[in-house]
């Protein structure tokens, strides 16, 4: 069974139909890269997966559970959306770290708040808090930031901030981790460190959806590449198929622009 299954997802802003029936699925531990030209709807797709936008129709299921069904309004209740969001993590293009918390504070905040909802929180408060702390420190050192945990976001470079943001998203152990152009806001010399971290996550079988303009990286990291064009899936396949032997005319044009 697929971890993530998206079926005929549609989303319009007013008259503008941005997603015109997107379908794909993702197996556990796999990484799918989404490529496509500007305005093709890549960000909108990720925002729909994370319930930051409500699709007009379609189905999103995780591990066989329907999280969103356009035909079933009960699946769109606000109160349930918060829980459903936890199946997904999102790393933003612009990091969006919380400026008033240290790197460690950023990673721990949501976990600490969620822990308070646990029934056994009062009884095991100390252990729970210690466990969250340990987990957060572990994630930050996994990101190569062991010596930066007590710094505030404005004291970190863009690449370091983005790695904190990745640790923050991982802290809640989402089923699917989404990235929206994680290196687009970075100086070229800083993109490498972030891409390396994402590659290491792929090697640990983290299930990921990555929107990126880094073609070489997409080729390396993905098990599947999805080319989006004007709100539809123009082509989807292994990196070898899509990059090595694109069938769609639009894909060919797009890749030529990037390789040239």
């Amino acid at each position: 069974m697929s971890v993530l299954e998206v079926k005929d997802l549609r989303k319009s802003f007013g008259k503008l139909e941005v997603l015109k029936g997107i379908s794909f699925s993702l197996e556990k531990g796999d990484t799918i890269s989404i490529i496509g030209s500007s305005g093709s709807g890549k960000t909108t797709l990720l925002r729909c997966l994370n319930f930051l936008e409500t699709p007009n129709s379609g189905i999103i299921s995780v591990n066989g559970e329907k999280l969103f069904d356009g035909a079933d309004s009960a699946s769109q209740r606000d109160s349930e959306i918060r829980k459903k969001r936890l199946h997904f993590g999102l790393v933003f293009q612009s990091f969006n770290l919380f400026p008033q918390y240290t790197a460690l504070g950023n990673v721990k905040l949501a976990s600490n708040l969620l822990a308070k909802e646990r029934l056994d929180y009062q009884a095991h408060k100390k252990d729970i808090i210690a466990e969250i702390d340990e987990n957060a420190r572990g994630l930050l050192s996994q990101m190569g930031l062991a010596d930066k945990i007590d710094l505030y976001p404005h004291q970190l470079s863009g690449g370091q901030q983005q790695r904190v943001a990745i640790a923050r998203a991982l802290a809640l152990s989402p089923d699917v981790l989404c990235f929206d152009e994680p290196t687009s806001a970075l100086d070229p010399e800083l993109t490498g460190e972030v891409l390396k971290v994402i590659l290491s996550l792929a090697e640990k079988y983290t299930t990921m959806v990555i929107v990126t303009h880094e073609m070489q990286f997409a080729r390396e990291v993905s098990s599947q590449v999805l080319f989006m064009d004007k709100g539809v899936v123009a082509e989807c396949g292994t990196p070898e198929e899509v990059f090595g032997n694109p069938k769609n005319e639009r894909t060919k044009q797009f890749l030529e622009r990037y390789s040239g």
């Binding site: 930051l52 918060r82 969001r85 999102l90 612009s94 969006n96 949501a110 923050r168 998203a169 809640l172």
Partner: peptide, 22 residues
């Protein structure tokens, strides 16, 4: 910035938590 609220939302925080903690 709107992104602060969205970052809180995708981390499963409630509206109240986002307001008071972020």
């Amino acid at each position: 910035p709107r992104g602060q609220q969205e970052a809180g939302q995708v981390l499963g925080m409630t509206k109240g938590q986002i307001f008071f903690k972020v």
